[in-house]
Design a protein around this nucleic acid. Structure first.
Length: 841
RNA sequence: GCCCCCAUAGCCCAACCGGCAGAGGCAGCCGACUUAAAAUCGGCACAGUCAGGGUUCGAAUCCCUGUGGGGGCACCA
């Protein structure tokens, strides 16, 4: 057998390496956190838990790769790291699969979980498998119900009748957050319609200010994009509430405006057609107006959300035959109903200032209502802008108040402040804030979710299920009609739904709805702390030890939904006294998507890269290195741009170095001090730079640095100091330790070849030696008028004076300066000397 | 309409507080090994940083304007 073949036979074989180490790790269980007596500092690294719809896909591979890099990194830095895994296993896909294929949602769900667990086993993220949870287990959702009861006690869970988003395909209501900007359901893609229903809500709007203001604490720690999205979503808007009298009506009508400065320009009022006020005013109008209003209301409700949101749409409305009185000037203004005013924002009514609001102007021009300019707005040329009636453009800018009595002459900002004062003095208004955010609608008319722990009596009264009776266990799906029909399948489980009150003997009925699955995921990071505790949702002492989550990793698709709900529930837990912090996730990494040929992968488009086949063909390590190396983790990865073969080649190169060291007779534990100085410097630069790079999520750069280190070490082995040199061992050990973040199998095998015991995952990183980071010589660049003219090799300790003298002495520099006069010399040792000149006098 | 992010070799991407545009990879080319190929190894070449203006001794980096791309919010008063 030739040496060549011999080598090949012993070559890098990822399958053999995986098979070698998997059983060893499963035996060692190295990633169980919080063992007794472990007093290392703590880190809680969490990946957003997966939904079990089939096997893992490339998106999972990416997200869990990044989370695992960070978990393994902090272990290497000497931390006790909690890195748990669980499944977000309630939800519609299970139910839809059940309907389509006639299987039990429970069976379908748990079979998928088993498949994902098996894939994770090979992919080998460093999970603590002793804390696994599934939100569809009664042991978990019991605590959803407990949270619901706590919130019910505090008045944070309530029921109301309202116009809700209705998904006609899934036949259930949706939260606002689940309706996309185009008016379709994020789940089914159906066009969402409005329905008036009585539903359960969580009062998240009570927390709007805190949810918004606390985002400031996350600045620089969360992606700006996510902070921005949350701010937009909460949509705080400050202004004033102004009360208008309506002739013939006892109570005054409040409206919200951000522009109380323009009160004198309010020439009509508009109410939302689907508001109670509109119905009341129409009822008191002439039969003719009543009929017009009825027709208008019906037509408005038929509009789809998409049509409604089209801003170019022509304004419509009907006069309600009533007049309001402007509180600042006593003027009578007509009251209209128009669908450009929304019933559920502010008070469902506005004061219309057509001169200074484009929507009001459009309406006024269409229905020939008066327009009064109250703010003199100037253009760039200093001239007053043309009259809105002429131009059709409302004057939205800043200016000086006119036609506004006591406000005349004030600027916009001053007038806003003064107007609020005046309103407050007269008792007809006050400063006010409104939000875009609405309360969180949590009931769903579907089966596969957490039953709402409420009992209904025949007289319509409600009582909570006592805590001692939890969990309210979801009944078997057998015999239930799961098909979407607009009412909850649980209503059909008569035996389950009927309860006899032990005290009164009265017959009670269980609430047939289940909770939005975002309730499940809004607190799961607490449950991991006490996953096996049957007596409480989580142990506050464990929370004190581990929480909040130090590092969260997940997709930006949850930027609003899951993250907002989680922040809300965390604040509620804080207010209930269970925890002493208010933000659940201190740092967050949002990974990009894995694309193929520029498009999102999907089976229907036929551009699918299968996780399972990639894992089989290339192994976990090559896959993980490819994902980490593809670019910044936040960016999308196009699978067409990357090379898994290239990653495998790199891993084989790294592995062969360990093989060479093993073959050289080098033994572990010896001093590195006598090793090759140049290689040692390279190794220590890597050790010095890698932590900062990982902490800045520059995983691609760390992999590049590892490649570089492998390259220089290869050179040292082949044409330098040779494999037996201590510096080579030092370098390869450093490579193995850092590589273990990205390629745990290969690194473990290298570690063993270097003569160490498993596992490299628990090895504390070697410290960089500062003495090896200083160079003796530096290259000083000399610029003349911004152009590089010479490079000088000088001692690293060179003084500014000596550097300048050397620069001036350079022949190349003197040539560049010529007979021009030197006007400025900037010296920045040890980097650069910059000489500025001007023509000789 | 309002707000946010991005733009560097053919491609994916580096470049610290403003200081030599290149770390790494893919693809390409040349060479070694091989009967040959693959694998492996060695080497080479490639842009002046989207455009225009400004600040500065010095700009990929800071500021302004524009173009292109991506994202969030939107008849929200």
């Amino acid at each position: 057998m030739s040496e060549q073949q011999d080598r090949q036979a012993e070559g890098y074989d990822f399958r053999a390496i995986q098979d070698r180490w998997l059983p060893v790790w499963e035996d060692l269980r190295p990633f169980e956190a919080g063992k007794a007596g472990d007093d290392r500092p703590k880190k809680y690294v969490l990946d957003m838990f997966p939904y079990p719809s089939g096997d893992l896909h490339m998106g999972h591979a990416e997200a869990f790769c990044f989370g695992d890099i960070l978990a393994r990194y902090w272990r290497g830095r000497g931390y006790d790291v909690l890195h748990p895994i669980g499944w977000d296993s309630f939800g519609l896909p299970a139910e839809n699969a059940a309907i389509k294929r006639g299987v039990d949602p429970r069976e379908w769900t748990y079979a998928n979980i088993e498949q994902q667990k098996a894939s994770f086993r090979v992919y080998a993220p460093s999970f603590d498998w002793s804390r696994v949870l599934h939100t569809s287990d009664p042991e978990y959702y019991k605590w959803n119900q407990w949270i619901f009861l706590k919130m019910y006690e505090k008045g944070l869970a309530y029921r109301k009748a309202s116009w809700v988003n209705w998904d006609p395909v899934d036949q259930t209501v949706l939260a606002n957050e689940q309706v996309l900007a185009d008016g379709t359901s994020e789940r089914s893609g159906a066009v969402v319609v409005k329905k008036k229903l009585t539903q359960w809500y969580f009062r998240i709007t009570d927390y709007a200010d805190r949810l918004l203001d606390d985002l400031d604490q996350l600045e620089g720690k969360w992606p700006t994009k996510v902070l921005n999205m949350q701010r937009n979503w909460i949509g705080r808007s400050r202004g004033a509430e102004v009360e208008f009298e309506i002739e013939g009506r006892e109570q005054r009508v409040p409206v919200f405006t951000t522009r109380p400065d323009t009160l004198h320009g309010a020439t009509f009022m508009v109410v939302a057609p689907d508001s109670d006020l509109a119905a009341e005013l129409a009822a008191g109008a002439s039969p003719e107006v009543r009929m017009q209003f009825q027709a208008y209301l019906e037509q408005a409700q038929k509009q789809s959300e998409i049509d409604r949101q089209n801003a170019d749409r022509e304004k419509t409305g009907v006069f309600l035959d009533h007049f309001a009185v402007n509180p600042v000037n006593g003027e009578r203004i007509p009251v209209w109903a128009a669908d450009y005013v929304l019933a559920d924002y502010g008070h469902g009514a506005i004061m219309a200032v057509p001169a200074h609001d484009q929507r009001d102007l459009d309406f006024a021009l269409k229905f020939e209502l008066p327009v009064r300019v109250v703010l003199d707005v100037r253009g760039e040329d200093g001239e007053s802008l043309p009259d809105p009636v002429e131009s059709g453009v409302a004057l939205a800018g800043d200016g000086t108040l006119v036609n506004s009595a006591e406000l005349d002459g004030l600027s916009k900002a001053d007038a806003i402040a003064r107007a609020v004062e005046i309103l407050e003095e007269r008792g007809t208004g006050r400063a006010a804030t409104t939000y875009r955010l609405r309360d969180w609608l949590i009931s769903r008319q579907r089966y596969w979710g957490t039953p709402i722990p409420i009992l209904h009596a025949e007289d319509g009264s409600m009582q909570p299920v006592p805590e001692s009776a939890l969990p309210v266990v979801l009944p078997s799906s057998e015999g239930l009609d799961l098909k979407p029909k607009g009412t909850s399948p649980l209503g059909g489980a008569t035996e389950w739904a009927t309860v006899v009150d032990p005290e009164t003997g009265a017959t009670l009925t269980r609430d047939p709805d289940t909770m939005d699955t975002f309730v499940d995921s809004s607190w799961y990071y607490f449950r991991f702390l006490s996953a096996n505790d049957g007596t409480q949702a989580f142990d506050p002492a464990e929370a004190k030890k581990w929480a909040p989550v130090d590092q969260y990793v997940g997709g930006v698709e949850h930027a609003i939904l899951h993250l907002l709900y989680s922040r809300f529930i965390t604040k509620v837990m804080h207010d209930l006294g269970y925890i002493d912090f208010e933000e659940p996730f201190l740092d967050m990494l949002n990974q990009g998507m894995v694309l193929l040929d520029g498009a999102k992968m999907s089976k229907s488009k036929g551009n699918l890269v299968e996780f399972a086949s990639e894992l089989r063909d290339h192994g976990a390590d090559a896959l993980r290195v490819t994902l980490a190396f593809a670019g910044p983790p936040e960016d999308d990865i196009d699978w067409a741009d990357v090379s898994v073969q290239g990653s495998a080649k790199f891993l084989a190169r790294a592995w062969r170095l360990a093989d060479d060291v093993q073959g050289s007779g080098s033994a572990p534990g010896a001093s590195f001090a006598s090793g090759d100085a140049a290689l040692r410097r390279a190794t220590h630069r890597l050790l010095a730079d890698a932590p900062g790079l990982v902490e800045q999520y520059k995983f691609n750069v760390v992999v590049a640095r590892l490649m570089e280190q492998v390259n220089v070490t290869r050179k040292a082995v082949d044409s330098g100091c040779g494999a037996a040199d201590p510096a080579v061992r030092e370098s390869v050990e450093a490579i193995a330790v850092i590589l273990s973040l990205f390629a745990p199998y290969t690194a473990e095998d290298m570690w063993a070849k270097l003569g160490h015991e498993p596992t490299v995952a628990l090895v504390t990183w070697p410290e960089a030696d500062p003495a090896l980071l200083v160079e003796d010589e530096i290259t000083l660049v000399v610029q003349v008028d911004g152009k590089v003219r010479d490079r000088l090799t000088l001692p690293a300790s060179v003084s500014a004076e000596d550097a300048e003298a050397a620069a001036r002495a350079s022949a190349a520099v003197q040539r560049a300066v010529g007979d021009r006069a030197v006007v400025n010399v900037v010296v920045r040792v040890p980097k650069i000397v910059s000489i500025a000149t001007k023509p000789a006098a």
